[in-house]
């Protein structure tokens, strides 16, 4: 494990070394982190392409069944990364650059600082400046595993299973525009990204495997329903594509609001 951590740190230092040298480069690297359209718009577009790209009706039905299972699996991927994040604490690389102590065998040990090159522009720079004033949310200190890596890798891989062409583009965009900038700007270490991606990929493949073997009786008719009700299916597809741009944040907010309403009604 020490070797993996050292390798992760080495790769992080190499990639973070790109930051803080050029305002233009930092602005471009930060763009997918700060702008949902740039971050996930292309992935949503690939999803929609895969949805409509079947050669014949049977092929379209098969692709849509795969995409429907992919959407369902995203919920499990997010839940898994959150549960693991609650159990394992690894500070963000830019947090690691601060004076800190960590708990090791019941003792606080001063943490060796990790070098950090601050981007010259973008939201991460603002977050780093806020961190130096202590203005960071407690649950934002840790970064293991990366939920973005889990979510977008699962989504892109699901698209790839439905349509090789759209999926290859989605995977490439996920790697280059979503995950790489997170390492370059010090939001995540390569280990965070690798763990999140592995969780996303493994869960997606496992759920696809189970669904194909046990849920065909429901999936194919459901996909057939989307063909018979194209207008309504397209409207629902809009919600899926929209929500995929922000890692189910609105869905989670809605769930929180629903819970608060239930508590309010039950309490009154």
């Amino acid at each position: 494990m020490d070797l993996i951590l050292r390798l992760s740190d080495w790769l992080y230092l190499l990639l973070n070394g790109l930051a803080g040298r050029s305002w233009l480069l930092d602005t471009l690297i930060s763009l997918p982190l700060d702008n949902n359209l740039v971050k996930a718009g292309p992935i949503g577009a690939c999803f929609v392409y895969a949805w409509w790209s079947g050669g014949d009706e049977a092929d379209t039905r098969r692709r849509r069944a795969t995409l429907l299972v992919t959407v369902a699996s995203l919920v499990f991927v997010m839940a898994t990364t959150k549960i693991i994040a609650d159990g394992f604490f690894q500070p963000r690389p830019f947090v690691h650059a601060q004076q800190a102590w960590h708990l090791e065998d019941g003792k606080l040990v001063e943490t060796a600082k990790l070098a950090y090159r601050e981007p010259l522009n973008g939201g991460v720079r603002n977050r780093y400046r806020a961190l130096e004033r202590g203005e960071i949310e407690q649950n934002d200190l840790g970064s293991f595993p990366s939920d973005h890596a889990g979510f977008f890798l699962a989504l892109s891989l699901g698209i790839f299973l439905a349509s090789r062409r759209a999926g290859a583009l989605a995977l490439a965009w996920t790697g280059a525009a979503i995950l790489l900038p997170r390492i370059v700007t010090g939001m995540h270490s390569p280990l965070d990204i690798a763990a999140g991606a592995a969780i996303g990929a493994a869960m997606l493949l496992a759920i696809q495997f189970v669904a194909r073997r046990t849920q065909q009786w429901a999936l194919i008719p459901l996909a057939g329903w989307t063909l018979r009700h194209e207008a309504l299916a397209a409207a629902l597809l809009f919600f899926v594509a929209f929500e995929s741009t922000n890692v189910l944040t609105n869905v989670r907010d809605l769930a929180g609001t629903g819970e608060a309403i239930v508590e309010h009604v039950a309490g009154s």
Partner: peptide, 20 residues
């Protein structure tokens, strides 16, 4: 990759931190 990540989970040494 999954096995590597899960193996890593078992030995992450920073279960908590204090940032001064």
């Amino acid at each position: 990759a999954l096995a590597l990540a899960l193996a890593g989970c078992g030995k992450l040494d920073q279960e908590a931190m204090v940032l001064t």
